[in-house]
Amino acid sequence: MSGDATVFGSGPGEKGAASVLTDAEVLAAVRRELLNRRESTDALDDPADTTRHLLVEGSIVRLVETRREARQVHYGSIDLARRPVYGADLQDYAVPVPEDLSTPTTLKLVRRGSVSEQSCDCGNGRVGCKRCEGTGDLHCEPWRPCGDCRGLDCCLRCDGTGKQKRRPQVRTEPGGEATERVTCKQCGSPGSACPTCRGRGKVRCTRCDGTGARECTDCHRAGTVVHDHCKGKARIVTWTEGIIARRPDVAPIKITPALPYPARQQAQEHGDWARTQVTGRRATVGKDSVIAEVLEPYLGLRKGEITRRISVRHLSVVRLTLTAHPHRVYYVIPTPGAPRVLVLPSKRRTWQGVALLVAGLAVLALAARFFA
């Protein structure tokens, strides 16, 4: 275990304790099972094949840190006095390692001597509007040509001049009907003027209502606009910001050997799992731990890792076969009390049973066809 690691807790299974059964304890548990079955225990005197299957569950939480600098610009006043200050090298700034490694954090600092505060030349954050040249209004033509007669047929008698003169014929629409006419405002002739412009040949501008000036859409008649340089704040603050970000990198661990489902289920429900929790920058579980070898591939140092917490539980299940019982497999599971023994058929016996079942079904199928 590394020098900066701290063991927060260790279960009873570490270093040959209760959840790692000895060979003698395994044989004693199988002996009790045979006696409960009222079978001879002489089979235990024959050579036996014993294998241990280690189940491990948990996670490794690494706290990964990144440090960077960025030039910041703030428009207006800002209070930077409460922010931490660092020197020339951001990497030299020490930040304590938190107890909670699962919560991401971001620390923002200010580089010493980098703060600059300036007043903008605009004075109050506004400058004269360039579009209207500070007047607030834009020039507009108070009158525009009539959209119906285009000023050509404004009056059939005076042609918009106010002096009467008769035209050869009345203009008609393509359908042959006479164009609707009203009294001319220019010469007073009834039924001779365009109803839209009433003989003037032009209509009042709807944008300025004939005043010759309309509102500037940039400043809305204020004559000034927000100064782009200072964003209307009249003050600019710049500084070099150091950012220390920490985020948890969680790596789940689940090591499940090739055990039959009933054995895994019994281990989950009744097993006496040993628990280990270790924290530190290069924390491991120790070379003498029963789980050291299986955890080794998970313990590589990540880029930016400043500390880690290993939280796992583990259980060793023993698989035992006896020469005298070739069709049985004994699974011995450590529990808080006496070890639990689960007896399952061997693979060979299982396949034999499947073959007999298939053969029986085939016979039944042939018999059904024969007597049909």
Rank of each mutant, 00 (worst) to 15 (best):
137 D>N: 06
331 Y>W: 14
3 G>Q: 11
257 P>R: 04
307 T>W: 07
292 A>E: 04
120 C>G: 02
257 P>S: 03
273 W>L: 06
50 T>C: 06
167 R>V: 11
151 G>S: 04
125 G>M: 13
246 R>K: 10
143 W>I: 07
252 P>A: 07
348 R>Y: 14
129 C>F: 00
36 N>V: 01
134 G>E: 02
6 T>N: 12
298 Y>G: 00
372 A>E: 12
199 G>A: 09
372 A>P: 00
119 S>V: 07
103 T>N: 10
118 Q>N: 10
368 A>F: 13
330 Y>Q: 01
276 T>P: 00
308 R>N: 04
157 R>L: 10
22 T>R: 06
15 K>A: 07
151 G>Y: 08
3 G>Y: 06
322 L>Q: 06
292 A>K: 00
366 L>F: 09
36 N>P: 00
185 K>W: 01
72 Q>C: 11
150 R>A: 15
108 K>Y: 13
120 C>I: 05
181 R>N: 08
241 E>A: 15
129 C>Q: 01
1 M>D: 08
223 G>C: 08
160 G>T: 03
156 L>N: 08
178 A>Q: 10
362 A>S: 14
267 A>G: 01
305 E>G: 09
58 G>Q: 04
177 E>V: 03
323 T>H: 07
360 G>K: 04
23 D>I: 04
100 D>K: 09
310 I>E: 07
51 T>P: 00
207 R>Y: 01
299 L>H: 05
336 P>N: 05
7 V>W: 11
229 H>Y: 08
258 A>Q: 15
4 D>H: 09
227 H>A: 03
313 R>E: 10
229 H>W: 09
5 A>H: 13
294 V>Y: 00
29 A>N: 04
251 A>R: 15
287 K>A: 06
65 E>F: 05
152 L>A: 15
360 G>I: 03
256 T>I: 09
291 I>F: 00
266 Q>G: 01
99 E>I: 08
10 S>P: 00
319 R>N: 04
340 R>G: 00
369 R>Y: 08
281 R>G: 14
188 G>W: 05
2 S>K: 07
264 R>M: 12
93 Y>L: 07
135 T>C: 02
22 T>L: 06
11 G>S: 04
210 G>E: 09
245 A>K: 15
81 A>I: 02
109 L>F: 05
194 C>V: 13
205 C>N: 15
